[in-house]
Nucleic acid binder design. Sequence first.
RNA 1: GGAGAGGUGGCCGAGCGGUCGAAGGCGUUCGCCUGCUAAGCGAAUAGGGGGUUAAAGCUCCCUCGAGGGUUCAAAUCCCUCCCUCUCCGCCA
Length: 415
Amino acid sequence: MIDPRILRSEPEALAASLQRRGIELDIDSLIALDVRRRNERVAAEELRAEQKNAGKSISQAQGHERDAAIARAGELSEAYKTALATADALDAEFNEIWASLPNVVDETAADGTEEEDAEELRRWGEPEDGDFLDHLELGEKHGFLDVQRAAKVSGSRFGFILGPLVRLEFALVNYAMDRLEPHGFVPVVPPVLVRDHALFGTGFFPGDRDQVYALADDDLYLVGTSEVSLAAMHADEILDKDDLPLRYAGFSTCFRRESGTYGKDTRGIFRVHQFDKVEMFSFVHPDTARDEHDFLLAREEELVQGLGIPYRVMNIAAGDLGSSAAKKYDIEAWFPGQGRYREITSTSNTTDYQSRRLKIRFRDDDGNRLVYTLNGTAIAVGRWLIALVENYQEPDGTIVIPEALRDYVGFETIG
RNA sequence: GGAGAGGUGGCCGAGCGGUCGAAGGCGUUCGCCUGCUAAGCGAAUAGGGGGUUAAAGCUCCCUCGAGGGUUCAAAUCCCUCCCUCUCCGCCA
């Protein structure tokens, strides 16, 4: 949720932001609606004040005077109810539009509206070309991946991860936690079933409702990322300024319906309905949010570099940002099996978009202010496993475990 | 799943139709006092949204788990839901 005051203070900034995202909106009529709803609210509140005063006089009045006062208060009460209904209806109308608006884009986000418009910031490592097996072929060869049987059990876009690849998964998770905890990230295993307010609060509802698994019988939803649980963890709280930044590293399974992706990335476990992920999440002072964003990106690069996987960093285009993000960096790793760079992390500065919805504030010297929230992938396990096995395959198909993970897995090669 | 008890401000806790956004305590902040510390004295101290203002301020409305209802008037009465605790059952 954007600060509605932007409509009064700098509507042209909102217009510019929406334009960069490629969204059409009649801002003038929205401004008019905002004025109307506030006027109606004031009118209703004035009636309410009158009614309350009338009510107070009742307790002091006697006899006929009292009867008359009650009648008068009754009239005011009716008038107030009518005015309140009008004001509420206008608010609802306004809020429905307002809640659906995406965050104001950061001026340094890349221009454009498509994935291809992302700006490449830098590259690291030497991508290897040549004859590489992709992860599915490697999985079949070594028996650590089974999508056939997963389809039998659960349908398409699922996988069994087996044997050494499971060890590698746990190694990756521990590797990440070991490197994040010294930076103040508190490890968390959060709930993966959440209420709708958590999804609304993080900006996934109403926009991305079709991407979320719902458990209708229980009014619960499966999270697509632990960002949802981690953000909502401090909902309705007023944090101590001295506690900022608050950093968490959440490990959870993530569930995504992947609707609208038919035929896209159907091979192996690159794009599946369920995967595990370590996610970084920060609650920070507004003034430090940009630094924190760079900090999260630095943590991601550190993790990828530690494993020696070639990658590039992308500044995502304004029109390709999620609704809550003002700015987003993706790291794309080199996947020899696909012969191209693909996303393995994503970090977003969501400014106060989520904290306004979730009411997460901190005590400042002159009042309470909304915190800024940021999130970033530490390890998206599935894709990182793929990147590892594809990049570390030898000509004979053997997979070498990178130095940084050997102590965790307890072996040096697969195959 | 069954039975019971509760959810009030940063925390504890009173209030159970009007004078209550709410006693009292703790905590915190500021000031005073005390040659240190502790104690003592005085004052301030919930959140949100409007109006007005250059700002300070003034003012109005909403919020006592959430949402409905009754009433001229609801923290207080009624309904639904959520959550917490205790006991029993089940269970990794």
